[in-house]
């Protein structure tokens, strides 16, 4: 698992999906993110790496305004999704989050059946016209989540009864069921065993065909395996951003090099 093989895949000349400029985040008096500029491409996996506490998860949560749920958090700067500022007053975070879905560190299926877990998003956003339509959406999402074969016979069983890896794939399927344009993943494999991790990583690679995926990880190997672009965060600063291959073989900044070679973090 820990080879440093870098996945060589073509990064097409994709469009910019999200463009962040001069982003600052404050938690009360703490300056958590300092002046970050980054361009996230469509149909690409972008990895955020860095030592713990460097702000990578905080920045990820800015991208679909999950930070709004924390009272003391304040965001400055511009984050544009398809050229529209997501922190504009006119933007409803609910609508934004339908476009920018999120998968969390620990699998968090709702205490409902597998079917209802997947159908939750489509139901609240009104994506299905009728029951048959909804069934179709659920099946499609479960297939995309690479878990359909394991659960198709027990869609009524509670989602909490699945194993950790299955739960996380269920959560990914739940996120893709609402047809988002961007999928944010906050250390999706940190609570999983190596085999489940491998399955989820394969899944991420497949998802790239339809979505722009942003993944936060503390594992450099994982970043190297799944991503095409990598951003290295350190103490709230975006130190270096570039093609994954370049970051891992030829880092420009010496902090990046120290981190990759294991001297810091």
């Amino acid at each position: 698992m820990n080879d440093m093989r870098i996945v060589r895949k073509d990064v097409d000349m994709n469009d910019t999906k999200i463009s962040a400029k001069g982003v600052q985040v404050f938690y009360g008096d703490t300056h958590a993110i300092k002046d970050v500029d980054v361009e996230i491409l469509d149909k690409t996996v972008t990895a955020f790496i860095g030592p713990s506490g460097c702000g990578k998860s905080t920045f990820l949560r800015c991208l679909n305004r999950m930070n709004d749920t924390i009272d003391i958090c304040r965001v400055e700067g511009n984050i544009l999704l398809d050229g529209e500022d997501i922190y504009d007053k006119r933007v409803d975070p609910v609508q934004l989050r339908a476009k920018v879905g999120m998968v969390f560190q620990r699998p968090n299926p709702f205490p409902k059946s597998i079917y209802d877990n997947i159908a939750y998003g489509p139901r609240i956003h009104g994506l299905a016209k009728n029951k048959a339509d909804l069934d179709e959406i659920v099946e499609k999402a479960l297939r995309r989540g690479a878990i359909w074969d394991e659960v198709k016979d027990r869609l009524d069983a509670p989602g909490t009864g699945l194993s950790g890896g299955q739960q996380q794939r269920l959560c990914i399927a739940r996120a893709v069921a609402t047809e988002p344009e961007v999928l944010l993943m906050d250390e999706p494999c940190s609570a999983l065993d190596p085999i489940a991790t491998l399955q989820v990583e394969e899944l991420i690679d497949e998802l790239r065909e339809n979505f722009s995926v942003v993944i936060v990880t503390h594992s450099m190997q994982q970043a190297a395996r799944v991503s095409q672009k990598t951003a290295f965060f350190h103490l709230g600063n975006l130190v270096e951003y570039g093609d994954t291959e370049q970051i891992f073989t030829n880092p420009k900044d010496e902090r990046t090099e120290s981190y990759i070679t294991g001297r810091i973090g």
Binding site: E84, I86, D88, D92, Q95, P122, G126, K129, L134
Partner: peptide, 25 residues
């Protein structure tokens, strides 16, 4: 009982601007 999506299917809604709230929202 939210199956009736009177504002069109998902794809159409997906490409809409963030700045305008859909009727459903």
């Amino acid at each position: 009982s939210d199956f009736t999506a009177d504002n069109g299917p998902a794809k159409a809604a997906g490409k809409s601007s963030l700045f305008t709230q859909t009727a459903r929202t």
